[in-house]
């Protein structure tokens, strides 16, 4: 069991540094815009001038989570489905439009997926394990599995997160590429996890990914059965699918309604589930993240404030 000691998100709802975010979600609009703090209060101007939205979000969220937990992170594990798209597109424009012998390198340098985690380590002066996972919409689950493994191996304070940014070009490609009618949005969530309970009461019990998943209810029931649980005992579902029949008395959040299409949405789903459990006496929350090609991610959260 890995306790969540701090969690922060940024997306098209006003959620950064907010509590009870499950009550503050707004439906994704026609023209979703990222709600941000003044990044200058988090990032030095010499660094900020180069950074795309995904990097600004990642660094700011990591710093805010680091500030909430005293110890420096002893591992950093980040997921991203599509990576640093702004800089990738910018550099594609550079190579096909700039004539001359020399090319501006900044966009290329910042186009690699691990720029997010790398910039976090650079900004925090952190020399520990630094990993970037990219498995489409299961990227956060992969980062979380790695983060939990770091805890199992002895890390005391692990930063896990996921970030994805939208660029205008992406919306031209739907629905054919991502099997989604909803708009692409920009979103990131970062959290600190540890095997030590300390003041936290919300923990991640398990995370599982399945390639070539069978029917969602079959996979979900099997996943829960390993913890002696059934669907009826889950109090809160945060999901991106209608294929799972949820119990009548449970709280259900359809994450796509708030977030549109974002490949890091399951990280934000953990934040929603975390705040729901924290503000209640309910015990279990389940995040169900399916993709169009039968990949499935399942994350189980437990509130042990009132239970043991």
């Amino acid at each position: 069991m890995y306790y969540i000691h701090a969690i922060q998100s940024m997306n098209n709802s006003d959620v950064f540094k907010q509590e009870d975010i499950h009550q503050k979600l707004v439906e994704v609009s026609e023209n979703p815009t990222l709600v941000t703090p003044d990044f200058k209060t988090y990032i030095a101007p010499t660094a900020l001038r180069r950074l795309s939205p995904i990097l600004r979000m990642g660094i700011t969220l990591a710093k805010e989570v680091q500030a909430a937990v005293d110890q420096p992170f002893d591992a950093i594990s980040v997921g991203t489905g599509l990576g640093c798209l702004t800089d990738t597109e910018k550099f594609l424009n550079v190579i096909y439009t700039v004539e001359g012998d020399v090319l501006s390198p900044t966009a290329f340098i910042q186009s690699t997926h691990n720029t997010i985690a790398g910039q976090i380590s650079l900004d925090l002066g952190n020399h520990s394990y630094n990993m970037t996972h990219t498995q489409n919409n299961l990227s956060f689950e992969m980062a979380l599995i790695d983060g939990m493994l770091c805890c199992e191996e002895g890390s005391k304070n692990v930063l896990v997160g996921a970030a994805d940014e939208s660029i205008e070009f992406l919306n031209k490609l739907k629905p054919s590429v991502f099997d989604s009618e909803t708009l692409f949005t920009t979103s990131a969530t970062f959290l600190a996890i540890s095997a030590d309970k300390m003041e936290s009461s919300i923990a991640i019990l398990a995370c599982k990914t399945i390639a070539n998943a069978a029917e969602i209810s079959v996979e979900t029931n099997a996943f829960l059965a390993a913890f002696g649980l059934s669907l009826e005992q889950i109090n809160c579902f945060v999901l991106n699918t209608n294929e799972l029949e949820t119990p009548a008395n449970s709280e259900v959040f359809h994450i796509d309604d708030q977030l549109g299409f974002n490949q890091s949405s399951s990280a934000f789903a953990v934040h929603v589930a975390h705040d729901f459990l924290k503000s209640s006496t309910k015990e279990f929350a389940l995040i169900v993240n399916r993709s169009s090609n039968n990949y499935l991610g399942l994350i189980l959260l437990k509130n042990d404030k009132t239970h043991n």
Partner: peptide, 17 residues
């Protein structure tokens, strides 16, 4: 100004262009 080696490469682009 706190510029670094990436900026040095950008200077080379600036001088060329």
């Amino acid at each position: 100004l706190g510029l670094d080696s990436i900026d040095a490469l950008e200077f080379i682009v600036l001088l060329d262009v």
